[in-house]
Each structure stands twice: as structure tokens, then as C-alpha cells.
Design a protein around this nucleic acid. Sequence first.
DNA 1: TTTCTCTTTAGAACGATTCTAATTCATTGA
DNA 2: TCAATGAATTAGAATCGTTCTAAAGAGAAA
Lengths: 143, 143
Amino acid sequence: MRGSRPALKQGDRRSADRLRAAGLRPTKQRVALANLLFKEEDRHLTAETLHEEAHKAGVRVSLATIYNTLHQFTEAHLLKQVAVDAGRSYFDTNVHEHQHFYVEDEGMLIDIPGASIEVAGVPAAPKGMTVDRVDVVVRLRRN
Amino acid sequence: MRGSRPALKQGDRRSADRLRAAGLRPTKQRVALANLLFKEEDRHLTAETLHEEAHKAGVRVSLATIYNTLHQFTEAHLLKQVAVDAGRSYFDTNVHEHQHFYVEDEGMLIDIPGASIEVAGVPAAPKGMTVDRVDVVVRLRRN
DNA sequence: TTTCTCTTTAGAACGATTCTAATTCATTGA
DNA sequence: TCAATGAATTAGAATCGTTCTAAAGAGAAA
């Protein structure tokens, strides 16, 4: 055997490339978190759920790093932050234009495909301001 | 003089009536807070700003009561809760259908009149769910 | 390697909110 | 008018999500 360094897994390489392309150093933690975050498309996570997921996957990351990473990924446009609930932040792995259903009682977010919703009649932004984005949240309750 | 009880001010009477109509006991604190909240139309407040405002007005109310009152008023449809920022809750005295501009950096909410914005193409709610409301937030940044 | 800088970390600190248990108040009926 | 009763208020502790701090660790380049 040629030393005990574990072989890089394919996912790791892809995540590392993605991070480098985004201008982020592919550290062990960031790669591991990227693997988890982007293993499927269109995921909605909070810091807490990601932390748990990492723990279950045997990845040891501090909560501080979870927060740092979520924010760095958001700045790098690998994630999008969604504000639906005063109390906790959701992060969405789908960075394309789209909107959400939100089930308040369960804290569950569901994607609405980008093309479906059309918002008309948005007034011009007040003087000195620019529209950053238009968020639509369709709030649901269970029958 | 007929005793030292202070005369009811007109605003107090109107607030008390409004509270009774909403099924809430018109206590001293609730009347005082209603006076502040509804002295003008279309206000956006957080627990903290209302607490300060009460303090400045010489009304002594605990923060716990501020929170209780805001939630009770919201349940009674005297207020509407607006979720634009994970971190703090805004309460809107305009309970009619309308949407908001939100200036992230300043934490400032601005009403968009109810009639201006039109949202089309909202998909049917998933099975077993009902649409509660559709919130549109136009996020602004200063140039 | 060594060096330099960036990253990660544990734990403290923080801000918003909720909880708790004791006190005070509003309402009702005698 | 008063006492009784249930509701509302309160201070302060507790909790929750998040950010900060300062120290230790790790990646990159020479």
C-alpha cells in the first residue's frame, strides 16, 4: 500500500472543482459540506439540518463552520438564502429564479418552478434604490 | 371633583371599542398599545420599536406584554405579521391585501398598494393543503 | 521544509423571543 | 359596593438561532 491517505472520491473532486471555480479554497470541511448540499438538486436546509446531516454522515464540522460555509456559499452564488420565517434562515441549493410554497406549521419549503409564477405591476423602486429581487412566498396550511 | 380617576381620552374609547369588537379585553396596556399602533395608518413595527415608542409616550409596559399583545392582535386580525428577515418580526397595521418593498440594509419596509401587484400562475396547492396567502417582497438596495 | 495566510474551532456572547411563577387587574354576581 | 374568580401583566430566567473571539490547525507557495 502506498500510504494511508484515503483515495479522493469522485464527489470530492467535483465539489473541489466547483469550489475553486467559485473562488473558494477547497478545504476538507467545505468539500464535505458541498458533497452533502449538492448530492441532490433543489434542497432546502437550515444550519441545524445541515449540521445534523453532516454528523450522520460522519463528518465532524463545528456549527460555526456550518454558518461560515453557508454564508460563503451564498456570496459565491452556490446557494440562495430564503427568508420565510423570522427565526431561522433557509438555504436553497437551487440558485435559479423560482419561488416557494411554505408550510408554516411544518417549516417546510417546496419549490415552485421558475417559469410558473408571473409577477406584474411591480412599481418602480423608490428614488436612489434598485430592485434586487422579487420574492414570492405562497403560504400553505394543512387542511 | 368627582374622584381622581383620569378622564377617558377619546382615543382610549375608540381603542377599547376596537379591542372589544375583536374579542379582547380592553386592559390598560392593550388600550395604550392600540393607541400607539393605530394612531396612523400603515405602520411597520417590531417588538423593539413598539417598546421604545411606548416608553417615550410614558406608557410603562413590559417587553413580555409587547410580545403577547402583538401576537394577540395578529390573531385577532388587527395586525399582520410580515416575514422578510430571519432575525426579527415585523408587524403591519395595514391588514388589507398588499405587498412590500424591503430595504435589507436598513431593515425598512415600504407598502406597495394592494392593487398594483398582480401574481399570476400560482400552481394549485399540494394535496391536503390550502393557500393561506401569497406574499410578495420586492427587495431593494441603495444605489 | 518554512512561512504566510486563510480556515476551523470551542465556547462565550448576543439579540430576539418565549417561558415561568408570582402579582395585579377586570369582570361578574351577590 | 365588595369579594371572588379567571385573565392579564410582570420581572427575570431560559431558550433559540446566530455571530464573535482568540487560539490552534491546515492549505499554498517558495
